[in-house]
């Protein structure tokens, strides 16, 4: 029997090039954030000058603080709602309006952000709501709860349902069975969902631009208006800090899913 070699040279080359393509630009950005020179492209030695500049930039700090608050608030609400939605879809069997429900949950995942942003803004204007922290938070919750629902639902789908049934056969009511059996098992996915919602919110420019009001810009909005004017070393420093924050979040997410799924089933990170 002729054996097909599992990993050809072509496979290795495409993997290496692909990963290099994905990581080199970010790596270059991080390195240049420590550049002492004002000219972004001339290497002037290592320095923390641009980080210093960022911490003295009040408008940037305020925007970063706004972004963090929105990300924490919207991720928390989105995780709650998204988990409920996932439970309803994977355990609720048939119910009225189910098709519409799942449709509304999957559509925002790929819906162009300009449409989501515009439609929410028109709603807020019609309701005469004051635009700022809460409108952005609501908008981000609407987007990110769909991602949470997908992550949690895929975990629920791979779960052995006989565990829940055993708990109910032993006399648990459904709510109790869910809380004491199902919930601990899907906890890693819920944590991963929260982290994903948090980073998506921190990342979003378009929807936030539509739904925020004057004087409450988020970090991406500030970065965007600076970037339009050209490359500035300070932006490299801010970007590096954001990347570091997200890296911490990812490490925490993977630790959380390792800790609570010692049976070897790990939650899908996406």
């Amino acid at each position: 029997m002729r054996k097909v070699s599992r990993l050809s040279r072509f496979n290795i080359a495409s993997l290496a090039l692909g990963l290099a393509f994905l990581y080199l630009p970010i790596l270059i950005l991080v390195i240049y954030s420590f550049n002492a020179s004002r000219l972004v492209t001339v290497w002037g030695g290592w320095s923390l000058r641009w980080y210093h500049e960022f911490f003295n930039d009040r408008a940037m700090i305020e925007a970063a603080w706004m972004s963090l608050r929105v990300a924490v608030a919207s991720a928390t609400i989105a995780t709650l709602l998204g988990t409920l939605a996932a439970v309803a879809l994977s355990r609720g069997e048939r119910f009225r309006g189910r098709t519409l429900f799942s449709g509304m949950l999957y559509a925002p995942l790929v819906m162009p952000e300009v449409i989501t942003g515009l439609s929410l803004l028109l709603l807020f204007v019609a309701l005469n709501a004051e635009r700022g922290f809460w409108t952005v938070t609501i908008a981000h919750t609407t987007l990110t709860m769909c991602f949470v629902a997908v992550v949690v639902q895929s975990r629920l789908g791979s779960l052995d349902r006989s565990l829940e049934e055993a708990a109910m056969d032993l006399g648990c009511d459904p709510v109790r069975a869910f809380l004491s059996v199902t919930l601990p098992l899907i906890a890693p996915a819920i944590v991963a969902g929260w982290m994903l919602a948090f980073t998506l919110s921190l990342d979003d420019l378009v929807i936030a631009s539509f739904t925020t009001g004057p004087g409450s810009a988020t970090l991406p909005i500030r970065i965007y208006s600076e970037v339009r004017l050209g490359v500035k070393p300070e932006i490299n420093a801010i970007c590096t800090l954001v990347i570091a924050l997200i890296a911490v979040v990812i490490v925490m997410a993977s630790l959380a899913s390792k800790l609570s799924s010692s049976q070897g089933e790990s939650a899908a990170p996406l």
């Binding site: 409920l84 439970v87 309803a88 709860m145 459904p174």
Partner: peptide, 21 residues
């Protein structure tokens, strides 16, 4: 039996998505 309370879980996200989507 499990399906009924699970359906109730849909209410809050359902209302939210109708309202904001």
């Amino acid at each position: 039996i499990f399906a009924r309370p699970a359906r109730f879980a849909a209410i809050a996200p359902y209302v939210w998505m109708v309202l904001f989507f």
